[in-house]
Design a protein around this nucleic acid. Structure first.
Lengths: 144, 144
DNA sequence: CTCAGTGCAAAGGATTTGCATGCCG
DNA sequence: CGGCATGCAAATCCTTTGCACTGAG
């Protein structure tokens, strides 16, 4: 199951001249097991075997290898998730109070309409599109 | 023209027990004059009469008064813009290299479709929607 | 032997806060 | 007069970096 993932990750790391070490494997596994983007403290809770600085350093390496995506929400913590082409294209419910993020997806037709519209705008502005971001900001059930 | 804006801002500040001081007026005017969200250094360039800490403090007050919206992009600086109900509902082209943000709008029909889809998701998850965010991340013309 | 990867501790840097002063109401 | 607003400087705190050590190839 996730051995496919490991092979892909190893390949991408190799492409940027980096190894797939146990510490990096642990990070990938934690992110893969999560339904939502995690902050660094959350990651360390799941796996306390890595030092904080190494975790940051490895997340940065994994980001350069296109394995991990870093996202900023409303609070002071960055959140990390696996790159979309390793999982599935999705969007975020972001709680404006506690900053927690949940994943969700929308229908392919809406997705397509959005993409077409954005591509047109980008062309007009001389902007090279990479990906879009469609999030809903509000208040999660726990923050009422 | 912008005196309407000043009246509205004054009212909203009053609602949270704060005054509409010259320093705050300057912030509102700078943001109102800009076509895009600004970082704090950019704001201070336009008006160096306020201390950095006061600018942050006042932006925070204005945010609590629903006059200013703070947004996070890819770089380390927060960006500030006027609340959408004081301007116009819009979206952002975000450069992944330099972090610069440009505004754009999309058609009302797409806007409606997006809003309907997101509302449905939110209801299912017990999430209280506040606003959505539809951005395009890529590379701006200056970063090639 | 070499060099990437790691842990620890210290530095960085955007943002926040304490405190004394000034000013509006 | 009372309390908010401001400037300055110091503190915060997430994140990055320097450095010495270790282990894989």
């Amino acid at each position: 199951m996730s051995s496919d993932l490991h092979v892909t990750v190893a390949a991408r790391l190799h492409q940027v001249g980096q190894r797939f070490t146990p510490g990096r494997r642990a990070l990938v596994d934690v992110l893969d097991a999560s339904e939502r983007p995690l902050t660094l403290p959350e990651i360390l809770e799941h796996d306390s075997s890595v030092a904080q600085s190494s975790a940051y350093r490895n997340l940065s390496v994994l980001e350069r290898a296109s394995v991990v995506r870093r996202i900023s929400t409303t609070d002071e913590w960055a959140r990390f998730e696996l790159a979309e082409d390793l999982t599935e294209h999705h969007h975020h419910l972001i709680c404006g109070i506690c900053g927690t993020v949940e994943d969700f997806t929308v229908g392919a037709d809406l997705e397509l309409a959005v993409d077409r519209a954005l591509r047109r705008i980008a062309r007009r502005r001389g902007f090279a599109p990479e990906h879009h971001r469609l999030d809903l900001i509000g208040t999660c059930s726990r923050c009422v």
